[in-house]
Write a protein that binds this DNA or RNA. Structure first.
Length: 505
RNA sequence: GUCCCCUUCGUCUAGUGGUCAGGACUCAGGAUUUUCAUUCCUGCAACAGGGGUUCGACUCCCCUAGGGGAUGCCA
């Protein structure tokens, strides 16, 4: 069997679409699953849309996501160049070949002429006309003009395009890996421009030529390409090449089921209702873990199958289990809530040491120097299951490193009672006597105070947490106290009973 | 308009003729001998509609509706 080769072939428009990332992911997974090669090819044949830095941005996003191409602009490879803009000679050559064989023709119509043709028909009837077999004999092209006239126009340097001459009544069938058999009739297909008047190829020509020359075995791309398949199939036929296996992926939609568009969005924290940001860079910036985003979008259209109810997949497992047969046909809605949950799951699963290293700079940025690595490890262990994002660490756990400067007013109002001072004083007394300042001892101490005062544990727990951390939420109280240490706890409790009552006045 | 694709809980989905239609997120309630944003448990909630085929349809066929894509010298 030939070696699997897949390609991700984005056009560098300036940002990476979340759907594009998923396409890249599926191409990557499929290639890796079959010990094949994953290729990045830049489809930059639209010079009017050239965006400075777009390719770098693209490569950076793939890199971040861990989808590093085996071949591509920054990886090299034997099938380069990997920029289509650097392959124009090739496309010219193959277009000429089509011309010679009569599969394609020159067309000299200006955009204005075509527009006026369309306008005329539009006014006469209803259906907006295509440049196809209905109209091609009424236009200015090498089918209607005669050889000498064509040669003359060419010699004069008249702008022209090369169009594919689609046969009139043909059926094209594709056996799509995801959708099964799909058929098209050529009567619905227009005479696609192959070479534009600026000499650059269109996507349709370039992708066929490159996929063939680069030995691509499987074309995995978005559903928006499905209706172009007959053109592509016909091109393969004209060239006498074998078509790669095709798989058309479903779309990813906004919560309101519209297409995800960059236009809708200003920032990830401020999205119009029903919309979601399609720009991968926004997710990077917001602090999502790459594995989490990958995990989430993998599940947006793929699942491991019957009886397998896992939600959390390391990339390695995805590679192991991915198959095109298990990709869904229907479009999926992007759900930020589930992404966030998956992100928190991945953080919980991370090695504490790794988290510690990533958290250090965060602390340093706040001017916080932990007393020791060992202490930091204990704090991270306590908090890692509670973080949705790693950059929440300081907000969540600042009190582990500095005395609280203020007490959350809502919690004060809700939890601080008239007897709080008394209860805390008794608690201080109890823990001062403790032989071992540990969870068990603290729990017993607390319950002794509770019983003695005929109060629920909560009546003491809440004020203690508040005095010690300044907040109403956090890890288990006993663990929290244990990590903080006796001296700190007692100091903070004393400070709390002095300062918090002032807030109640 | 035409062509193509799609349609199971709010969302992601399992399911390939006989299931109490399962799981996950969200939400609600509860438990951890009454912290919480962790963990655990419970609950709410779906086969778009109509025709067939069949002893029997979420599963197969047809129609309708809805959604999406294409219809460019953009990809």
């Amino acid at each position: 069997m030939t070696k699997v080769r897949t390609r991700f072939a984005p056009s560098p428009t300036g940002f990476v679409h979340i759907g594009g990332l998923r396409t890249a992911l599926y191409n990557y997974l499929f290639a890796k699953r079959h010990a094949g090669t994953f290729i990045l090819r830049i489809e930059d044949t639209d010079r009017t849309r050239f965006v400075e830095g777009a390719t770098e941005n693209l490569i950076h996003a793939l890199d971040w996501a861990g989808l590093v191409p085996d071949e591509g602009p920054s990886s090299g490879g034997d099938y380069g160049p990997y920029y289509q803009s650097q392959r124009t000679g090739l496309y010219q050559k193959y277009a000429r070949d089509l011309l010679d064989k009569g599969y394609a023709y020159y067309a000299f119509d200006t955009p204005e002429e075509i527009e006026s043709m369309r306008e005329k028909v539009r006014q006469a009837g209803a259906p907006p006309p295509k440049y196809d077999f209905h109209v091609r004999l009424n236009m200015r092209n090498s089918l209607t003009l005669g050889e000498t006239e064509v040669q003359k126009l060419l010699d004069e340097g008249t702008p022209y395009v090369i169009r594919l001459k689609i046969p009139e009544d043909r059926t094209f069938d594709v056996e799509d890996k995801i959708r099964g058999r799909v058929s098209f009739n050529s009567s619905q297909v227009d005479d696609q421009v192959l070479i534009k008047s600026d000499g650059y190829p269109t996507y349709h020509l370039a992708n066929i030529v490159d996929d063939h020359l680069m030995d691509i075995t499987h074309v995995i791309r978005g559903e928006e390409w499905l209706s172009s398949v007959p053109k592509h199939l016909y091109l393969y036929e004209c060239f006498g090449w074998q078509s790669p296996v095709m798989a058309h992926l479903p779309l990813i939609l906004n919560p309101d089921k519209s297409k995800m568009s960059k236009r809708d969005i200003t920032s990830l924290d401020d999205m119009p209702s029903g919309k979601v940001d399609p720009d991968v860079a926004s997710y990077i910036k917001k602090g999502y873990e790459p594995e989490a985003l990958i995990n989430y979008i993998a599940l947006l259209g793929w699942n491991p199958g019957e009886g397998d109810e896992r939600q959390i997949f390391p990339v390695h497992d995805l590679v192991q289990e991915f198959s095109l047969e298990r990709v869904n046909k229907a479009a999926a809605v992007f759900d930020l809530k589930k992404l966030d949950w998956i992100n928190s799951q991945h953080i919980s699963l991370k090695d504490t040491k790794e988290l510690v290293e990533r958290i250090k700079p965060q602390l340093a940025g706040k001017g916080i120097v932990p007393e020791s690595d060992e202490y930091l490890v204990r704090v991270v262990d306590l908090l890692k299951t509670r973080m949705s994002f790693i950059d929440q660490f300081v907000t969540l756990g600042e009190y582990f490193f500095c005395e609280p400067e203020q007490y959350d007013p809502v919690t004060v109002k809700k939890r601080w009672k008239d007897d709080s001072v008394k209860l805390i004083l008794e608690f201080i007394e109890e823990i001062s006597k403790l032989e071992m300042f540990d969870k068990a001892g603290m729990e017993q101490a607390l319950h002794r105070v509770a019983e003695r005062n005929d109060a629920g544990a909560g009546r003491i727990i809440h004020p203690i947490r508040l005095a010690v951390s300044g907040t109403g939420v956090g890890p288990g109280l006993y663990e929290l106290l244990e990590v903080l240490g006796r001296e700190t706890v007692i100091n903070r409790l004393k400070k709390g009973i002095k300062d918090i009552p002032k807030m109640k006045q």
